[in-house]
């Protein structure tokens, strides 16, 4: 399964780290591809303010997410009323599944696509607000443990992906993008690196497709493995944060295990995201040397700041305010619940932006490299986390 390619097809002309609602209209209308990647011309709401254009899709996100919550509650209530022991399937999975059904059957209506694209915005809002549930000391302690694991994971992921990519004779820049995507934070890292190493759109599409396909699979596989190994919430969350590449999928895979595991997955993944600038800078310098253009990156500090995920700062600030005792217990509960609602929209967006039929169009060799590489990385990080579990005890 892959996320629909609308983001990829517009990569050359947009800042993909900016929500679609804030982008300038790009390209000629007939060249804009829809979220299904079908190439059909999409109706464009000319004249409507950006915030109006995102309303239908945001409502769709909320409806799908809320349907997932209702499904969980209804099944639980039915089981209790009829004294049945039904499996407790979390709203997270329902929201993703409902989104998948919509996306892969009737498709996301064109009028809703800009709003659906805001799922990443809601993810980041949710992460910042989640800071209220972490004391700064815990962030430092767990962040340090995570950072050590992240450093090892970065080395392993880059080595594994590079070796596999060369074995399968993938283009060098595609290997770089797959390495960056699997070592740091999936789509954001690939998009950030694409410009830095001047990779082709096609290579970026392949790399994003492979990373997101595996992210979708991880939603179903990781919780099963976590339960099979009887992992603690903290250890599982750390593992997911290290091994699942895209932040939305990592958050969902963590929440599918437990609420606490979801929090730790976000913390570990956020730590990993914070390294994005260093890895992209390394690859940018490498490709600048390969192209023999001398110094390809002028001001390295400015480059690192530009690539640094700023929402991490928001997360740390909110955590610091909570640690300072600024919030009452009721306010903490309110902010934590707002974070959950933001994540609910994110989980719906994960399903709505995932299209099974796109898989065949992306080619199999990058996917094979992605699958084998991610499996190796998942096993190595699992061993690493089980070894690091002592740090939590």
């Amino acid at each position: 399964m892959v996320t629909q390619m609308s983001t990829v097809t517009t990569l050359p002309v947009i800042d993909a780290r900016r929500p679609s609602t804030l982008r300038e209209p790009q390209g000629r209308p007939e060249h804009r591809r829809g979220a299904t990647g079908s190439g059909r011309p999409q109706p464009v709401e000319r004249g409507a303010p950006p915030w109006v254009q995102i309303v239908p899709g945001t409502i769709l996100l909320a409806a799908v997410g809320f349907a997932g919550k209702i499904a969980e509650q209804s099944i639980g209530a039915y089981g209790r009323a009829h004294q049945l022991t039904l499996p407790n399937i979390e709203y997270v999975l329902w929201a993703i599944v409902f989104g998948l059904i919509v996306s892969n059957t009737v498709g996301v209506p064109a009028v809703c696509r800009k709003g659906v694209d805001t799922y990443e915005f809601w993810l980041k809002v949710g992460i910042v607000l989640l800071g209220v549930r972490f004391l700064l000391g815990d962030v430092v302690k767990l962040g340090t443990v995570s950072l050590v694991c992240v450093a090892l994971e970065l080395a392993v992921a880059i080595l594994v992906m590079t070796a596999l990519g060369r074995a399968f004779r993938l283009p060098p820049k595609l290997i770089s993008l797959l390495s960056i995507g699997s070592s740091i934070c999936g789509v954001s890292a690939i998009i950030a690196a694409k410009g830095a190493i001047e990779a082709d759109d096609e290579d970026a599409s392949y790399a994003i497709a492979a990373i997101l396909a595996l992210g979708a699979v991880s939603l179903f596989v990781f919780p099963v493995i976590g339960h099979a190994f009887a992992m603690s919430d903290q250890a599982y969350g750390l593992w997911v944060g290290l091994a699942v590449d895209n932040t939305a999928e990592a958050t969902a895979a963590g929440a599918l295990f437990s609420d606490t595991a979801g929090r730790f997955a976000v913390l570990a993944k956020t730590t990993r995201n914070a390294t994005i600038g260093f890895v992209v800078l390394g690859y940018a310098l490498h490709w600048a040397r390969v192209r023999a253009r001398g110094a390809g990156v002028g001001n390295k500090a400015a480059f690192l700041w530009e690539k640094f995920p700023k929402f991490v700062l928001g997360f740390v600030i909110v955590s610091a305010l909570a640690t300072a005792g600024l919030f009452t217990r009721g306010e903490v509960a309110d902010l934590a619940n707002l974070s959950r609602w933001a994540f609910l929209l994110t989980f719906a967006g994960v399903g709505l932006r995932t299209n099974v039929s796109e898989l065949a169009r992306q080619g199999w060799r990058p996917l094979i490299v992605g699958v084998v590489g991610e499996c190796v990385i998942a096993v190595i990080t699992l061993v690493m986390v089980l070894a690091a579990a002592r740090a939590f005890s």
């Binding site: 780290r17 900016r18 915005f121 980041k124 995920p309 928001g314 600024l326 306010e331 509960a333």
Partner: peptide
Amino acid sequence: MRLSLDWWAVVAAGLAVVLVKSGIVSRIPW
């Protein structure tokens, strides 16, 4: 000046904190 997605998320979350802290928004259900 254009804000990136990350900064918009920080601004939105900051607004939520202000609204909750000021009591304008309270008792958020889940």
